[in-house]
Design a protein around this nucleic acid. Structure first.
Lengths: 230, 230
DNA sequence: TCTGATCTATCTGTATACAATACACACCAC
DNA sequence: GTGGTGTGTATTGTATACAGATAGATCAGA
């Protein structure tokens, strides 16, 4: 729609090769099934350079960024390898994530608008329809992550979002392996509802408590059922 | 002491230029007084390369790592600039830090040994001697940070340490500007003692609560007294 | 046949050359 | 005098060349 004052979009000067390669690699790594491969997958700089049609320089820059994010590990003179998280590391991530999200919930009760909180319901309301069978489990996982990301966002704390995004990145990678039973999902959804209700009541203590318990449940679940690693 | 089986230290294969440059730059940035300079300090790649006696490649690699850590900001075709944190960002850091450290305190009550906890007392016991005047304030700040780092360490959660280290990095940078009165320090020390006592009693709820309150006090203090930024 | 060493190929780490872009200053037009 | 354009310089982004190291293979010796 035309406006009176001219609206100019902020040009993304980040349109440099480094960023493009970084995005591509990140997407590729997170979408691949790390734990399916029996051998460590190595990222060959020259091969990547050839495939992406750029020189090795932007590749190396992107790889270094990915290493700092913990997605890959670079061994001097050996190469870059996709990192497989250990069970211990996964549990640590859930633990830290719980602390961050419970803080986010507390902040959200103060900083989020009513509309934003009620918007959370839409995020997962369609989960209640019983037609979705196991086929929808993958979609549930994605929606589940988005729900938690939303809470983080409602805290209006940018630093929180940055750190949490880094964690979610890894959670996404192990998501497909998480053994989800039907009952587990149902329980999870109920807990989500309770969290939203606590936020709506602006009950910061309750919201924080519920989020922490929710995370603890996930932690126990992973601890019990995840055996495909380590 | 000589042992039966030969003990070999893990050779630091990270001894590559990239890491050296990274360490140098990080130390230089954190030790400099960012907020004293009236203009944004720019990091010239070629100048740095000349001064450190290496080519631009390791310099750029190190700069990129520093950018991801939030210490500098790279603007395409413009250069790298040391980041000055806004007051809002500082408060956010304290907020997140509080959540992480209160989690750490909770974990520490379960994972830390009695010896480790009692070791915390030594960290700041000399603060009680009254001879140290304002001259020791700088040392207090450093010791203060080390105390909090110790708590994080006692949680035995590596991820927690990684994230917290990133935050402490920035805290160190603003430390020298934090207006510390004598009374403020005394209060702080008392709170530290209470935190240690809670840890010794293995009272996870109390320890977590005290750490959070301690952080909140710092947050309020900064919010009130820090006016030299933004 | 197995162990060990040497040699080679390949890949990474570093340096440097080249290209593109942004800022600054000067010059010109109005 | 002011504003705009154009060129020059300096600095970053990208590509490539070179050096060093590692892993695997081949070969010799027991």
């Amino acid at each position: 729609m035309p406006t009176k004052e001219l609206r100019l979009k902020p040009i993304d000067s980040n349109n440099i090769l480094k960023s493009k390669v970084y995005d591509q690699l990140k997407a590729a790594i997170t979408s691949m099934d790390i734990y399916a491969a029996e051998t460590d997958t190595k990222l060959d700089e020259r091969r990547l350079a050839d495939e992406l049609g750029v020189s090795r320089t932007p590749i190396r820059e992107a790889l270094m960024l990915l290493e700092k994010e913990g997605l890959i590990r670079m061994i001097p003179r050996r190469g870059a390898f996709v990192v497989r998280k250990t069970k211990r590391e996964i549990l640590e991530m859930i633990c830290v994530w719980g602390a961050l999200e419970s803080l986010a919930a507390r902040l959200a009760t103060a900083n989020a608008s009513d509309k934003e909180i009620s918007g959370l319901r839409e995020t997962f309301v369609s989960l209640d329809d019983p037609n979705s069978a196991l086929a929808a489990i993958d979609e549930y996982s994605e929606r589940n992550i988005r729900f938690h990301q939303s809470i983080i966002r409602l805290s209006k704390c940018e630093l929180l979002q940055d750190i949490a995004d880094g964690l979610f990145l890894h959670m996404r990678a192990i998501r497909s392996h998480s053994v989800k039973e039907r009952g587990q999902i149902a329980d999870s959804v109920v807990e989500h509802v309770h969290i939203i209700e606590a936020l709506e009541k602006r009950d910061e203590v309750l919201a924080e408590k519920l989020v922490r318990e929710h995370t603890n449940h996930l932690s126990e679940h992973v601890n019990k059922h995840v055996t495909w690693v380590e």
